[in-house]
C-alpha cells in the first residue's frame, strides 16, 4: 500500500468532479422567483442555496399580489453556466415555487437597487457631498447641520460608485435593499 498523497483541493466540488473548476466562466445572473407567500418559503429558497453551495450576491423579497398571496424573490447569483442551470432546476423543484425566470437570459432587464447613505461632515466636504449627490440624483431625505441621509436609486454599480465617493467625505453608514428587477418591454 502506498502512502497517501492527497492533492490539495482535488475534492473541492462534487466528490467525483475532478475537472478543472476554472474551465467554466463564471457569470452573474438575476433570477426572479414567484412563490406562494407561505411560512418558510424563503427558508426553503435560502436553504437550497446554502445547502448546495450556490452563491447569493443579492436577495430581495416582498409580496406582490396581496389577494393571491404571491411573493417575488429576486436573487442575484453567480456561477458557471451549468451551475446556473442547476440552480434554476433546483428552484423549480420547490413545491411553492410557481415560476423561475432568468432575467439575464430572457433578455435585457431593468435592475434597480435603493440605498440610504448617511454622510457626516462640515465645511468643504459637506458641500462636496451635496454636489455629488446632485450629480447622482440622490435626494437628501434627512439633514442636520452636520449630516445628511441620501436616498439613491440605480444599478448596484451606480450605488457602489456613489458610496465610494462618499467614503472620504464622511460616510457613516449605508443600508441597501438588494436588487429588484423586471424584464424590459411589453411582456
Amino acid at each position: 500500500m502506498s502512502a497517501l498523497r492527497i492533492k490539495k483541493g482535488s475534492s473541492k466540488k462534487s466528490a467525483y468532479d475532478l475537472r478543472d473548476p476554472n474551465t467554466d466562466v463564471i457569470s452573474s445572473h438575476t433570477l426572479a422567483v414567484i412563490v406562494d407567500n407561505e411560512v418558510g418559503v424563503l427558508a426553503r429558497v435560502i436553504g437550497l442555496f446554502s445547502g448546495r453551495g450556490y452563491n447569493i450576491d443579492s436577495l430581495t423579497v416582498a409580496e406582490i399580489d396581496h389577494t393571491g398571496h404571491r411573493s417575488r424573490i429576486t436573487i442575484v447569483t453567480s456561477g458557471p453556466p451549468a451551475v446556473i442551470e442547476q440552480i434554476k432546476a433546483q428552484l423549480g423543484r420547490i413545491v411553492p415555487v410557481h415560476e423561475v425566470h432568468d432575467l439575464t437570459v430572457e433578455g435585457d432587464a431593468v435592475e434597480r437597487e435603493l440605498a440610504l447613505i448617511k454622510v457626516a461632515g462640515a465645511g468643504e466636504k459637506r458641500v462636496e457631498a451635496l454636489r455629488l449627490a446632485d450629480i447622482f440624483r440622490a435626494n437628501a431625505v434627512d439633514s442636520t447641520l452636520e449630516s445628511f441621509v441620501f436616498e439613491i436609486t440605480g444599478t448596484p454599480e451606480k450605488i457602489d460608485a456613489f458610496a465610494d465617493l462618499m467614503r472620504p467625505l464622511g460616510l457613516v453608514e449605508i443600508a441597501r435593499t438588494g436588487v429588484a428587477a423586471l424584464s424590459r418591454g411589453a411582456k
Binding site: L4, R5, I6, K7, S10, S11, A15, Y16, L18
Partner: peptide, 8 residues
C-alpha cells in the same frame, strides 16, 4: 490515486 483518496 492521490486524487481519488479524498473521495468517498
Amino acid at each position: 490515486g492521490s486524487s481519488g483518496a479524498t473521495l468517498v
